[in-house]
Computed example of a mutant assay.
Amino acid sequence: MSATPHDTWRERVDALWAEADAIGDEALLAGMTELAAEHPDDPEALAELGGAHDSTGHPVEAAALYRRAVDAGLAEPELSRVTIQHASTLRNLGQHDASIQMLRDHFGAQPDHELASAASVFIALALATNGREREAVAELMRTIEPTLPRYNRSVAAYADALEAGDI
């Protein structure tokens, strides 16, 4: 990462993520650890460090950092992104129900949020990896239904029937 003295912390974080594939996991984690150390209790720095741990295959550490970021007062729009990332990490750790609940708690009250559809995808993934494939498909059908030009009523009814085991 070639930062200049005029780069902001956010610009340096973004630059590090932009070169993550080229520099590899060890360099990404080392670079983000260094950047986060500049703001050790800042919720955004904790979230970025959590993301680096997540991205480099350290889900236990990532989950703890995501929790710390939220507890430290992480604000939008980062809060919604970290909620998805944290829930995905919990799913990877086998905590399917916690993953689903976290996403439903956060996005359920704001179905028009720009990331609500993405959250539904991660809910469906958690349901499917927990052996609840019918619920997963129904979740995705309900997410797609409002965007359909036709057949909305039928798709909604089929989602309910699928989840109920009637089809």
Rank of each mutant, 00 (worst) to 15 (best):
A69L: 12
D42S: 06
L29K: 01
A52E: 10
I100V: 11
A119K: 13
N130S: 15
P149G: 04
F107T: 00
L28R: 02
T8D: 01
V121L: 15
H6M: 00
H39L: 11
A157G: 06
L148H: 04
S2P: 00
A3E: 01
A109R: 01
A136S: 07
E163H: 11
S154G: 01
R81C: 08
F107C: 01
D97G: 02
V121A: 15
V137I: 12
T143V: 06
T143I: 05
L90Y: 08
E163P: 15
E38F: 11
R132D: 15
L65M: 14
S120D: 15
R68D: 10
H53G: 12
T33H: 04
H86R: 13
G50E: 10
A87V: 06
P149R: 04
P77I: 09
R134Q: 12
E76C: 10
D97W: 04
P40A: 05
A52D: 13
D21F: 01
T129G: 14
L29W: 01
A22T: 06
E145L: 00
I84A: 07
A15E: 05
G24I: 04
G57M: 11
I84D: 07
D97T: 02
D54H: 15
Q95W: 12
A64L: 12
A3G: 00
E114R: 12
S2R: 01
M102C: 03
G51A: 14
H106R: 07
A72Y: 04
N152M: 05
S55Y: 13
E19P: 00
A72T: 06
P40S: 06
G50D: 08
E26A: 07
H106C: 07
A62K: 14
D7N: 00
L125P: 12
E114Q: 13
L79A: 11
E61H: 13
G165L: 11
V121C: 14
T147V: 05
A87E: 03
